[in-house]
Design a protein around this nucleic acid. Structure first.
Length: 587
RNA sequence: GGGGCUGUAGCUCAGCUGGUUAGAGUGCCGGUCUGUCACACCGGAGGUCGCGGGUUCGAGCCCCGUCAGCCCCGCCA
């Protein structure tokens, strides 16, 4: 299959079975070892490395070319595949049992000395990320990056096949869409033919896929590129890929079932067996036990409410907050005695940065109790909290909105520092029963926690106006080892309910009509019950590739300042082009 | 928008309390070498210490500003 008119097969595909054959190879000079009388060339392509030998018996022309080959030159080699003598095999190389004795050798593409190395020694540091992005064509040649992108390809194919087998139809939706006032900032595209008007790049195909359900396509999916003009993170790029799906005549169970099948297939593609169904926990339990809506449930190490046990101890650090009705919450750390004073100080510093008053700690060594609030605790009290010999307790006090993120962070840091054995390698879970509203950061007024098309929980619809914060949404998140892999919901299909929701967002009926009239009129045209999900595909690849950064699973990613260093985007526009778009730039 | 870390040879880094001519490994160039696989050995070239300003007799090192990359908070319906 890999053969062409200019090669027999790929370099990395050679095996003992090819011994005796004459082959023609094309590839990049990975490394060259010139021993004088004999030259070895490691020739590389996407399949791997093979050693080409140019010995004293090779034609003079071949020896002359081999002696002058620079790294990363593209060459065309013809030669005989020979078995290596036993003591000259290289077990670290898939092709290490054989080598190619070159009989013909030509340079196809000369290469200047690469500014960053492609071939890297064991333990050698990677070049600065800035340089890796600037010389992306070289960075992408590295076997690690080739492996990441080849895995990404296989996962994409597997997602497609899995959904197609489940009778989902792959349908494309527009990239030039309508700006939306809510949610993330839009990337805007000016219209040439309509002065002063703009398209937006989609933040997700949300409304389109709902329209496809109204149109009767029943099950839709798309490998969708999405765009959000927000500040970036290690796992957030301004353009990213979702495995987006939507289905009709479904409930929460159906959608969760489809998504589990896709995720299990993707993990299988990467060689990991994962059991279904995934465990579920409610949003309330997740935030109570883990302090976050994306808990890492690989570790059975929950946050506990210790208010009842700690309040009677009269610890000065806790008293003022306890008077205001706050709770003391903490973590019983098995083996926490191993945490150094420096560890604890750093944890406390991190806690303060997240708004905690501080982080109180106690260590128990037999009958000895020490720590910042140690003198208030006895072994008996600690035992009741689950803190045994050699363990530690870390705790803080305050409103849940502060203690939850603080203890989430502390819990993650402790897992990182003490590196306990996980109970499972691949811990999926569903977080369900999210609240429909959350308080606005400034006004405290209820605002939608998700997008405004999410259906309220049927048991809570009656409380929509009277007690909005108590209303749950038919919204669910897929979480893997503490990472949110995606979210979805059952949608509102009643136009009247959808109008009420828009009114909740502070939109007048006229505004709702102007912004979402096309959705409202669709819902009145006979809308089936429907719901869906979007899997953050880049995060899936990150997890399965073991990549530290999303940039390592995207061929041409942006920097944290949303720049493309390779091609140099964004860039100032030509004044004539701006004029044609009716745009004047103020600086 | 805010905070932190980093920026010294092509690359990865060291550079003490501010003090003479800024170092190492690797890559590159030249040489020796017939079994290496990060080949080995000998020799050599290579520096706007990110950029701008300031303090000082003197700045890679201290101060201010700025740019870039990375990490985090805000943000991401």
């Amino acid at each position: 299959m890999s053969g062409t008119s200019r090669r027999t097969l790929r370099c990395g595909e050679l095996r003992a079975q090819h011994v005796g054959q004459r082959v023609r190879l094309g590839g990049w000079v990975h490394r060259r070892r010139d021993l004088g009388g004999i030259v070895f060339i490691d020739l590389r392509d996407r399949a791997g490395l093979v050693q080409v030998a140019v010995g004293p018996g090779a034609p003079d022309e071949v020896r002359r070319v081999a002696a002058g080959l620079a790294s990363e030159t593209v060459i065309d080699v013809e030669g005989d595949v020979t078995a290596r003598p036993a003591n000259m095999k290289n077990p670290e190389l898939a092709t290490g049992d054989v080598e190619v004795q070159a009989t013909r050798l030509t340079m196809l593409g000369t290469a200047v000395t690469p500014p960053i190395p492609v071939a890297r020694g064991k333990g050698e540091e990677l070049p600065a990320e800035e340089l890796r992005l600037k010389y992306r064509h070289l960075d992408l040649r590295r076997p690690e990056m080739q492996g990441n992108l080849m895995l990404r390809h296989r996962l994409l194919q597997r997602a497609r096949k899995t959904l197609a087998d489940l009778e989902f139809l792959e349908i494309e939706t527009p990239i030039l869409t309508k700006p939306t006032p809510e949610g993330a900032r839009d990337y805007l595209v000016p219209s040439r033919v309509h002065p002063g008007e703009f398209y937006a790049l989609p933040q997700s195909p949300q409304i389109y896929k709902q329209l496809l359900m109204v149109a009767g396509f029943d099950r839709y999916f798309q490998i969708a590129r999405c765009f959000r003009d927000e500040d970036l993170r290690n796992d957030r790029q301004p353009e990213f890929t979702q495995v987006d799906l939507e289905a009709s005549f479904v409930g929460v169970e159906d959608v969760i079932g489809y998504v589990e099948q896709v995720l299990v297939a993707l993990w299988d593609e990467a060689g990991h067996a994962v059991a279904r169904p995934f465990p579920r926990l409610t949003w309330r339990d997740a935030t109570e036990r883990y302090g976050t809506d994306k808990p890492d449930v690989r570790f059975d190490f929950p946050i506990a409410d210790w208010t009842a046990q700690v309040k009677p101890l009269g610890v000065p650090f806790f008293q003022p907050a306890l008077k205001d009705g706050a709770r003391v919450r903490g973590l019983a750390v098995k083996g926490g005695g191993a945490l150094s004073r420096k560890d604890v100080d750093q944890l406390a510093e991190a806690a303060k940065q997240l708004g905690a008053a501080g982080l109180a700690w106690v260590k128990r060594q037999g009958e000895q109790v020490s720590g910042s609030v140690g003198k208030h605790f006895t072994p008996e009290v600690l035992g009741a909290l689950g803190v045994g010999d050699g363990d530690a307790a870390l705790m803080t006090v305050g409103p849940d909105r502060v203690t939850s993120p603080v203890l989430d962070r502390v819990r993650q840091e402790i897992i990182h520092r003490l590196a306990p054995a996980p109970q499972t390698a691949h811990a999926f879970c569903w977080v369900v029963d999210f609240p429909l509203f959350e308080p606005d950061a400034e006004t405290g007024r209820p605002v939608f926690a998700h997008h405004p098309f999410t259906a309220p929980h049927p048991d809570d619809v009656a409380r929509l106006d009277s007690d909005p914060f108590a209303c749950r949404a038919l919204h669910y998140d897929a979480v893997y080892n503490g990472n949110e892999l995606g979210s979805g919901s059952i949608r509102i299909t009643d136009a009247a309910v959808q109008r009420r929701v828009f009114a909740h967002l502070g939109m007048t009926p006229a505004e709702a009509e102007a912004r979402f009239g096309f959705l409202l009129s669709a819902l009145q045209a006979g809308a089936p019950p429907h719901g869906g999900f979007a899997i953050g595909f880049d995060r899936v690849v990150m997890a399965l590739a073991g990549a530290e950064s999303m940039r390592d699973v995207i061929a041409f990613p942006k920097t944290t300042a949303a720049r493309a260093l390779f091609e140099g985007a964004p860039a100032p526009a030509n004044p004539a082009d701006l004029a044609a778009l009716h745009i004047e730039v103020k600086r």
